[in-house]
Design a binder for these strands. Structure first.
Lengths: 194, 194
DNA sequence: TATACTAACTAACAGTCGTTAGCAAAGATA
DNA sequence: TATCTTTGCTAACGACTGTTAGTTAGTATA
């Protein structure tokens, strides 16, 4: 029954993501995970090779989603301010699409062991460079006022990433609206009448 | 030897803060901590009652520092935009003053057990409300353009909090400069020529 | 009907966890 | 000199860790 097998594997992955988010990777035991599903800890090993495999899937799955978003943005030739809006929109889509996985991706990656840890870090750096490039483009064209790109890109990223903490799929703010308001705030600031 | 006693206690607190930041609370064992100091794990208990006591001191010590900053800001009668600049400045001071403790404060608080956990959460909420009040003040006075206060305050806080991740005390950016650039960015946005 | 595979189980492994008990050396105090 | 306090030690506790071995019932395939 290929379908049932996949269902169970999916269920394990989803519960693991939830527990890793709520309690952290190190504080979640395989017995916790098994109990949350309703089986014995040893039975998990019919479906996976190790606990860390679960973490790897979550971290690299999210990384892949962010790269896909980046490639979509970069496939278009756009002025920097509009490109930045699009990048924000796509990033928000990825985060809101799976807030649990986003939280694990952001906070639990350091429990990866080598070589995955180094690979993960370099992927993250690559994504930061993609956003930095947009900022530099706009700065060079005189469209952005940025004294320090690094500060700006890290501030931007933290604003976008914290989303997982308060976004509610059943709330009244849609991802698109959130992205628009975030983009307005980042681009125009809070001060009225510009 | 009251002084030596205090020195050792301080050393333990600092190493614990560093290890909790780097590996996370759950993944740091008392044996790890003891080894980092150069004593046996059991010897730690001459200086503290439990592992969680260490976490409590870090979390509530930082909370106290943030509240002190808030009270300083609130003791002055200022227009909202200037008050927000000051709040940002004070917040940056607290974070940059101890980046390790800031990281633990931000990420490891959920390993507190009751009743400390609930107390901690309500203190955090109180601090968010202090910042929200400034935003509402400016909005009511027509100085701020804010469609959604909650989104704005959480975005602001995440920008400020992520500082612990990249601020280097020996770097070329002083806390005051960082605070000014952050404030400019939040208030004026990235777009040139306003 | 016979065979192979899947997904669960129980039992157990070697190691680690936070913590306690009991003790020893050193220095401070009386 | 005698006593108390501090700060470390060794040894050990019971619980928990990720994981493996071996087994079993049920289902799909030949």
């Amino acid at each position: 029954m290929a379908e049932l097998l996949t269902e169970r594997k999916t269920q394990i992955a989803e519960k693991a993501t939830l527990l890793f988010k709520e309690r952290g990777y190190a504080a979640t035991s395989m017995r916790d995970l098994a109990a949350a599903i309703g089986i014995e800890a040893a039975s998990l090993y019919s479906h996976l090779r190790s606990k860390e495999e679960l973490l790897q899937r979550i971290c690299f799955g999210m990384a892949e989603a962010f790269f896909t978003a980046r490639d979509q943005v970069n496939s278009l030739q756009l002025p920097a301010p509009i490109k930045l809006r699009l990048a924000i929109e796509k990033h928000v889509e990825v985060v809101t699409n799976d807030v649990n996985a986003s939280a694990v991706f952001l906070h639990e990656w350091r429990h990866l062991s080598e070589p995955e840890l180094s690979i993960f870090k370099s992927m993250r750096r690559e994504y930061e460079e993609y956003l930095t490039a947009i900022l530099q483009e706009g700065k060079a064209a005189g469209q952005f006022n940025i004294p320090n790109e690094k500060l700006t890109v890290l501030t931007l990223l933290s604003s976008l990433n914290w989303l997982y903490d308060w976004y509610r799929p059943d709330g009244n703010l849609q991802p698109h609206e959130i992205a628009m308001q975030l983009a307005d705030q980042v681009l125009n600031g809070l001060i009225t009448n510009k």
